[in-house]
Amino acid sequence: SEPFLPFTAQKLVELFGLEAPDWTQAGNGQLLKESSSIGQMGLLFEKIEDEVVEKQLNKLQESKKMNEAANAPAVPMKEIITYDDFAKLDMRVVTVLEAEKMPKSKKLIKLKVDTGLGHRTVLSGVAEHFEPEFLVGKQVTMLINLAPRKMMGIDSEGMILMAEDKDGKLKLLTPHEGTASGSTIS
């Protein structure tokens, strides 16, 4: 039983008082000597409670989800653009000065940011991913030359750029070191 029940086999070895049997002794009917005493019998198998089974099933499901997410294909690339198209984008590092959830919206956070060229208001659909307090003081990447767009009666004057992982969770695009607000991204 050792190859498929190693712990139970070890308990039996101890119960019968055998000294480290090896495979050459398999089938030997003389392993137990006459008048050998048997140790105290205990449980060979423990009952597995429903909570333990449920915990292991949840662990397996979580592992399965993580594996599926890691192996999910990336979002397909958008159409090819020219360098001139790219050069039109003005992306900069900005500092979030204020952040508050928008009333009557589950997704929008109203941000006041320092662009290095002045302060702007941006509405960003990140409320399901970040608390407003977390964003205050963070340096993030923003597309500052996007035409203003009226949302919920407020002009949003740019777009905060984010990365979305395979699980749909948003990640801030931040410089690895603090930098001046308005620093250009090229």
Rank of each mutant, 00 (worst) to 15 (best):
K47V: 13
G137A: 15
E100W: 04
V75N: 13
G42C: 01
N71K: 14
G27I: 03
P132C: 01
L5P: 00
L108H: 10
T174N: 09
P76S: 15
I160H: 01
G116N: 09
D50K: 14
K78L: 11
A74C: 01
L12S: 02
A26L: 08
E79R: 13
E164W: 05
K88R: 02
E79C: 01
H129K: 11
L43D: 12
Q10W: 00
I38N: 11
S186C: 08
L117P: 00
G125W: 04
E164M: 14
T82C: 08
L146D: 03
M152T: 13
M162G: 00
E164C: 12
K88I: 00
E2F: 08
L60F: 14
Q10N: 04
S37W: 06
L170W: 12
K150C: 03
K101Y: 11
M91K: 11
V93R: 12
L172W: 08
Q40S: 13
D84Y: 10
A72V: 01
K55T: 13
I81E: 09
E62Y: 04
S35D: 13
N67I: 07
L31A: 05
E100N: 07
G178H: 05
D114C: 11
D167C: 04
Q25M: 14
L143E: 04
V93A: 15
P103Y: 04
E128R: 07
K106R: 12
A147V: 10
L123G: 02
Q56P: 01
L57T: 03
L146E: 05
H176K: 15
M66K: 09
L123V: 08
I160M: 09
D165K: 07
G42S: 07
M152E: 15
E79K: 14
L173D: 10
A69R: 07
E131L: 09
G137D: 14
V13I: 15
V93F: 15
D90W: 04
L89Q: 15
E164D: 05
M77R: 00
I109E: 01
G118A: 08
V113E: 02
E51C: 05
I144F: 06
T82M: 10
E51I: 12
M162K: 00
D165R: 06
G39P: 12
M142T: 06
I109P: 04
S37Y: 05
A26K: 01
F45V: 09
I109T: 07
N67G: 02
V52P: 02
T115S: 11
S186K: 14
V122Q: 07
T174I: 09
A72W: 02
